[in-house]
Design a binder for these strands. Structure first.
Lengths: 215, 215
DNA sequence: GGCGCTGTTGATCAAGCGGTCAACAACGCC
DNA sequence: GGCGTTGTTGACCGCTTGATCAACAGCGCC
């Protein structure tokens, strides 16, 4: 009847541990927020010792920054793949709005909001936030530029407009975190707004089979 | 040569102390962020003992919530006064966008972002956030409703549209916190978007003597 | 089958947090 | 001028955080 059955110390490869730590950090960030990514929380989640987490990570600030970057970069990749299947710029933009505003991504939005807040005291995180925001803006800018090149959109500066569209999406999602408004209304109004910014006829960006694009 | 000249204990009225504490908390929130409002930080700022802060405050969570509510409620009052002088709904809305997007309120925006993040673990703060967001939405809704009543705006649901406008403003300001984009471009695009949502002719919401409205 | 490289651990540290409490002392009242 | 009310204080407590380090022990290699 051994009271503490000796935790059966297992020995794994450094790369394996690093993967486990990253996965645990990501799970915690999505479930409880980026500020819950602490040495001990990650250690518990990954079933290891806090000291081991510290051993594999330069600093907790760095781990938080990497976790943030990983989450939002994957989200971007996912969306790029979804949009890649669509050729028409209008439908592509419509799909983008519909997907990002469908209310199924509260966890990622929470990570964004926490990152903006925590970036004030975590330089690595602040840098990662700037980098990821730039990546997202570029993606939207490319969609818009594609449309203007095809003569479908009319827009002075696709870069500026992309920033605005991104800010609108982030603002709506951040609000949804506390206000839980109906996604459908948001998509409709956002679509109106984007149509105006791109010189499109009202209604020409109608949602494509709304809700079909699962996460 | 007294080493510690005995801090000369002063005795003030409870109300006076409460005011001092509130002022210190507000200063810290605006200067360093809502998460820097700690017992010790407030005590240092207000030149008193941490224990005295604890004595006058139900809990630090409550103080943080009150500090947040005070800051953004004052901001709203200020804006209401500014808008009250203007009679025309179009110019009122234009003034609203121009003022809130002039880039001079990073400190308050930071407080908003921190509140969204911290609200997850501070129930009192979360409640205050919902309350203040509702107040802001009502203010914008009234401006829009005024315009629709006058037959100038065309809008299905002023409430929904107000939520959208507020989200857009918050998103743009949150972005400005890390992206420092040019305010002028933001105002221009936001104006286009709002015009579309209110069935206005492009250009009819042109900024009124841009930049004239000081803080 | 033993040895050593190296992954792993528990103990421990300083710092910072919110909150409590008995003791102190300023100020007004009688 | 003494006294009591009450605002104020320092010394704590328990807790959580990130980080360090000597010591331990798998696992592969010879």
């Amino acid at each position: 009847m051994q009271s503490t059955p000796r935790p059966a110390r297992t020995r794994k490869t450094p790369d394996g541990r690093r993967v486990e730590i990253a996965a645990a950090a990501r799970a915690i960030a999505l479930r409880q927020g980026l500020d819950a990514v602490t040495q001990r929380a990650v250690a518990t989640e990954a079933a290891m010792t806090p000291a081991l987490v510290a051993h594999y990570v330069a600093s907790m600030d760095a781990l938080v920054a990497e976790t943030f970057a990983g989450i939002v970069a994957d989200e971007l990749t996912e969306l790029r793949e979804l949009l890649g299947e669509e050729g028409d710029p209008q439908r592509k933009l419509s799909l983008l709005l519909g997907t990002l505003l469908d209310g199924s991504r509260h966890d990622v939005t929470s990570v964004w909001v926490h990152a903006w807040a925590l970036g004030r005291r975590n330089d690595a995180l602040a840098a990662a936030v700037r980098e990821q925001m730039d990546d997202w803006q570029r993606m939207i800018r490319d969609v818009i530029a594609e449309g203007t090149a095809a003569g479908v959109f009319r827009c002075d500066d696709p870069g500026d407009t992309a920033w605005h569209v991104l800010a609108m999406i982030d603002g709506l999602n951040a609000h949804a975190l506390v206000h839980w408004g109906a996604p459908a209304v948001q998509v409709s109004l956002a679509t109106q707004a984007v149509e105006a910014m791109l010189g499109l006829r009202p209604g020409s960006l109608a949602a494509p089979t709304a809700g079909a694009a699962g996460r």
